[in-house]
């Protein structure tokens, strides 16, 4: 009995290792291809490691991508910060204050994060044009802030609901008003929620493509568009798109590996409460 259980344990471990290897295949292929020289890339020998490591694709890709990485950074940092800040306030209000129509407001807000953006695209760019926000990063930031509000509001609300009302009551007895409670009770407890929300938003915004491609002038385009350009425009030598993919993926993958715990919490909370 004990023996067979031991065997089962080993089997589980081996199975997991095999699956992990399968999940890592794309990484292997990406790295290997990106380090080959264009002449060496051949469909038949795609799996073999490069005979000579060629870092050039990375320097070329980085040179091409640098301005777009900067755009993406500005975009993701600003939009994340603003939508997180607004989401935090909204979450506070919606979890702790009984406003009229509160039961209707929340589903209506959350619906906004599920809509297919194709259904608002045409009016959106018309609006951006009329407000002269079209084309630049500020406009794109605005769009990401607005469409990020549902998820940030939802996440903060569910975090704040776990803060006991008594804590707030005690503070208001001490004379703290709306902002006082937020500042001295809610904010000090908001560190981890902010981290969760910011990681989630940053990843989403960094990876977004549809708004990025339709709402920006080329000078303000984020990295996803640059990658699509690189990979779709000239698919001659695959080393460049692969190196580009690595560069485009690096920030979010790093965040995920370093702060995976919070990333998962965002994932779980984003699924509402079934």
């Amino acid at each position: 009995m004990a023996k067979s259980r031991g065997a089962a344990k080993v089997l589980v471990q081996v199975l997991a290792a095999l699956l992990a290897a399968a999940y890592l295949i794309p990484v292997y292929m990406t790295l290997v291809t990106s380090l080959k020289s264009p002449q060496e890339i051949n469909l038949m020998t795609a799996w073999q490691p490069p005979s000579q490591v060629n870092w050039e694709s990375y320097s070329t890709a980085f040179k091409q991508f640098a301005p777009y990485i900067k755009n993406s950074l500005i975009l993701a940092v600003c939009a994340t910060a603003i939508s997180a800040a607004m989401g935090s306030l909204n979450g506070y209000v919606l979890s702790k204050y009984s406003l009229p129509g509160r039961n209707v407001i929340m589903p209506l807000i959350v619906f906004g994060m599920f809509i297919p953006y194709q259904s608002i695209l045409v009016p959106l760019f018309q609006f951006m044009q009329r407000t002269k926000l079209y084309g630049g990063l500020p406009g794109l930031i605005l769009v990401h802030v607005v469409y990020g509000l549902p998820i940030t509001t939802l996440l903060f609300r569910s975090f704040y609901e776990e803060i006991p009302d008594e804590l707030l009551g005690a503070a208001s007895i001490d004379g703290a008003d709306f902002f006082g409670v937020f500042r001295y009770v809610i904010m000090p407890l908001s560190g981890p929620p902010f981290l969760v929300v910011c990681i989630w938003q940053f990843t989403q915004i960094w990876n977004e493509f549809l708004f990025a491609v339709t709402l920006t002038r080329p000078s303000a385009q984020p990295i996803t568009v640059a990658l699509a350009n690189l990979a779709g425009g000239q698919a001659v030598s695959w080393n460049l798109p692969m190196a580009g993919s690595v560069l485009a993926a690096l920030p979010t993958v790093l965040i995920y590996v370093l702060l995976g715990r919070y990333f998962v919490r965002g994932l779980l909370a984003g699924a509402l409460k079934g």
Binding site: F125, Q129, Y134, V213, T214, T216, V225, A228, G232, G233
Partner: peptide
């Protein structure tokens, strides 16, 4: 990229506005 569709999308959104 996108077989020229991206360029058209960007150009048309800009011209329309």
């Amino acid at each position: 990229g996108g077989a020229g569709v991206h360029a058209k999308a960007v150009l048309k959104t800009r011209m329309l506005g």
